[in-house]
Computed example of a mutant assay.
Amino acid sequence: MTKKKTLGIDSKNPSENHVILELIQYNDKDYGMQADIPVDELLTQFKSDHVNWINVDGLHDKSIVSKLGEHFCLHSLLVEDILSEHTPKAEEFDDHLFFTMKMLYSIKNGKIDYEQISFVLGKDFLLSFQEKEGDLFGPLRDRIKHSSGRVRTRKADYLLYRLIDVIVDNYYSVLDAVGQQIETVEDDIYKNPTDKEFQKIQKIKKELIYLRKALYPLRDALSKLTKDESGFIDQANYRYFADVYDHVVHLIDSLDTYKDLTSSLMDIHINTQNTRMNEVMKVLTVISTIFMPLTFIAGVYGMNFDNLPELHTRYGYPAVMIFMALIVFGMIRYFKYKKWF
């Protein structure tokens, strides 16, 4: 049985283990935000007539997650899923809906920078749990603050959609970066294929494998949300989750295309290397073939026999050299006629 990887950084530096709690509360008329407040104080600020978004940055202090779990009556297995690395999934409980996925940022040094993010959706609240500080939701927070768009007029399920949509939109940026890497490697292969290009292709294949593991389960999880019958998702918002589902399907299609391109790049690299080797072998073969008759002539006249009339003639040496030159010239003309080089 594979042991689950526990999330969070165990650092000797207390500042790196600091957990930031953020509470955003809003409805169509009111807005409030509190950041970096103790969990006990945060729970007393809960407003039932508002959408309450509690965002947790950092999973180092398990006691904070446990307190939130006790307050919102979260199942122990759900809390364990929040604190452990998981493939994307959606799971329904009696009083809430659990959703987890990977939040991708960028590609650095051939590796995808990512973190796991988990959501717990209730009737009038949304909990989000992130591994580390910083996310992609800055513009969405501003829209909520300034009442831009329809998010302030909708419930918590619409907020969940907007957060998932922001994450999925950034998948396009990451996938585009992979596509640019593929184009760069392809150009390098045609110019001067080396082992470095082979290593780059291997790195890209690893990135695509990770994206595949993130996208395929996400598609299934979103499909489950679009068919939700528990009442956590308003029927009016089904189309929004279906739209995100369509985006993920499109991403998977692009991913499969890039996977095929990567396989083609591998074949192109191998074929190009073989072609270059064949060209080298062709040149060496032509040179060896040209020197075969010359070596034979040199060997004949290099024998230590007295009865070789050409050795004692005045023009024997220049005649042999001219004859050898004619052989070289004739063979080169013949090879060119045959288009062997």
Rank of each mutant, 00 (worst) to 15 (best):
V249C: 14
F93N: 05
T289R: 07
I37Q: 09
L308H: 00
K111V: 12
I144F: 08
L23I: 06
I64M: 06
H75Y: 10
F296C: 09
D234S: 12
S173I: 14
D176H: 08
D10T: 11
S173V: 13
R154A: 09
F198L: 14
V51L: 04
S254N: 12
D142F: 07
K336G: 01
S263W: 02
V174I: 12
N52F: 04
Y240F: 15
D188K: 13
D10Q: 13
Y158L: 02
K191Y: 07
S11P: 00
K196Q: 14
V280F: 03
I144H: 06
Y210W: 03
Q45A: 07
Y315V: 02
D306P: 06
D81T: 10
M281Q: 03
I107Q: 04
K213G: 05
Y105H: 12
N52I: 01
T184H: 11
P14C: 05
N237G: 04
F323R: 07
D40W: 00
L77G: 04
R143L: 02
R143M: 10
G231D: 03
T272D: 08
H269F: 08
R314L: 13
L215H: 08
N27E: 07
G134H: 12
W340G: 07
G122R: 06
V178K: 08
A156N: 06
F198D: 11
L23A: 09
Y114K: 14
E92A: 14
P139Y: 07
E41W: 00
V151W: 10
L21N: 08
L104D: 01
L140G: 00
T153G: 05
D95C: 01
T262K: 01
D135I: 10
F125A: 06
G149I: 09
E186K: 00
P38W: 05
L326H: 01
L59M: 05
F232R: 04
Y301P: 00
D243R: 05
M292A: 13
K5L: 14
Y258K: 09
I82P: 02
A298S: 15
L42D: 11
I164V: 15
F119R: 04
Y26W: 14
N304E: 10
D228A: 06
K336Q: 10
H250N: 15
T313D: 13
V280H: 03
E197K: 10
I117V: 15
Q34R: 13
F99Q: 05
E229D: 13
K102P: 00
E183G: 01
D220I: 11
L311A: 06
A35F: 05
K5C: 09
L218H: 03
K12P: 15
I204E: 03
Y337L: 13
L160N: 05
D234V: 00
E22G: 06
K338N: 09
